[in-house]
């Protein structure tokens, strides 16, 4: 039997599931970003330890202007 009450309960269920999945998606994006930025930071630190901070800055400048 398809009633308003049943439809309302189903709506709440659909909204809850959709909200959880959507927010989960958003958190996954945040996590991906966090790891990528951490990796980039580590790579930049390694680079600067190898060539000195000036070389890294010059390289970053060359990359941004190319």
């Amino acid at each position: 039997m398809e009633t308003f009450g049943g439809a309302f309960k189903l709506m709440l269920f659909v909204y809850a599931v959709a909200a959880v999945i959507a927010l989960l998606t958003a958190w996954i994006i945040k996590l991906i970003f966090f790891f990528i930025q951490k990796r980039n930071g580590r790579a930049a630190a390694r680079q600067s330890a190898k060539h000195g901070p000036h070389a890294t800055a010059a390289k970053a400048h060359a990359k941004s202007t190319s």
């Binding site: 308003f4 439809a7 189903l10 709506m11 909204y15 959709a18 959507a22 927010l23």
Partner: peptide
């Protein structure tokens, strides 16, 4: 985006009614 789905959800019981 979740809030902007208000119509997608509330219209469901309204349509059943």
């Amino acid at each position: 985006a979740i809030m902007a789905e208000l119509g997608t959800l509330l219209t469901f019981p309204i349509a059943v009614a």
